[in-house]
């Protein structure tokens, strides 16, 4: 779904006045953002802009110090139960993959369906194999992550998040730890996921990905949203001087 034609009735994910603070140092100030079902939103901006903090606040890895997060109409609170519900419905992919090195790829992917959702192991195994096939790694099911390339590890991590059948996938600089070639295979997987209609929020420094795959790009600096627009418009014709400076710097590298 493109930004231009999205008269959203109810967004799948809504952030309302979200602030994130470490101790008393606030790094995200009053951010509001709505994400429609099936939409792909790219968060771009310089390091330290608060992109990752904001993403981590969405699934309460960094509980927001102020503001509300509403997922599919239900406000996420601090209670255990609402947190559990949130984490079942929001998948997360980390910059460093964070696969469990003592488990095989298949066991990594099966872990949460069995232990969080309580699905019988045989069924979870089937589901996990489907997801590994989905990211093109069915043949690596019984290999430990340490024996896989970085790109393969990140795809296993994507399969692990997908096995929970989340409504939203969050990506925190998924290719930053990879060389360009391995990064490309991860981006291809994400591209396919977007084409299947997955709702995604992606923190990224991959400007081509933001422009080609995202429906909407949000530019952040100094803990605030500076500018947001349909991907093509923002990338080609940024309005705010700060955005222009950032995009110029990136392009002229």
């Amino acid at each position: 779904m493109k930004y231009d034609d999205h008269p959203v009735v109810r967004p799948l994910l809504a952030l309302d006045g979200v602030c994130v603070a470490y101790r008393h140092h606030e790094v995200v100030h009053d951010v509001s953002l709505e994400v429609a079902s099936g939409e792909v939103v790219a968060l771009i901006g310089p390091s330290g802009a608060g992109k990752s903090s904001l993403l981590r606040a969405i699934n309460f890895l960094e509980p927001p110090s102020k503001g509300r997060i509403v997922l599919d109409g239900a406000e996420v609170g601090g209670s255990r139960r609402s947190l559990d519900a949130l984490r079942r419905e929001v998948g997360m992919v980390f910059q460093n993959f964070n696969l469990f090195p003592h488990l095989t790829a298949l066991q990594n992917v099966m872990l949460a369906p069995v232990h969080t959702l309580g699905i019988p192991p045989a069924q979870a195994r089937e589901r996990a194999m489907q997801q590994l096939t989905h990211v093109g790694l069915a043949d690596h099911a019984h290999v430990k992550p340490g024996k896989c390339s970085g790109g393969q590890q990140q795809r296993i991590a994507i399969a692990r998040a997908l096995a929970m059948e989340p409504k939203v996938m969050l990506f925190d600089e998924p290719t930053s730890a990879l060389d360009p070639e391995l990064g490309a295979e991860v981006l291809a997987t994400m591209r396919a996921l977007a084409a299947e209609g997955m709702t995604m929020v992606v923190v990224t420094h991959e400007m081509h990905f933001a422009e080609d795959v995202a429906d909407r790009v949000v530019f952040m600096a100094d803990g605030r949203i500076v500018e947001e627009n349909a991907a093509g418009k923002l990338m080609r014709d940024p309005q705010h001087p700060r955005t222009q400076r950032f995009l110029n710097a990136v392009r002229n590298r």
């Binding site: 890895l61 984490r87 079942r88 980390f94 949460a112 969080t116």
Partner: peptide, 13 residues
């Protein structure tokens, strides 16, 4: 690594 614990939390464990 702290990241492993975060991954567990993100998976709802």
């Amino acid at each position: 690594p702290v990241g492993h614990r975060e991954a567990c939390q993100a998976l709802g464990l």
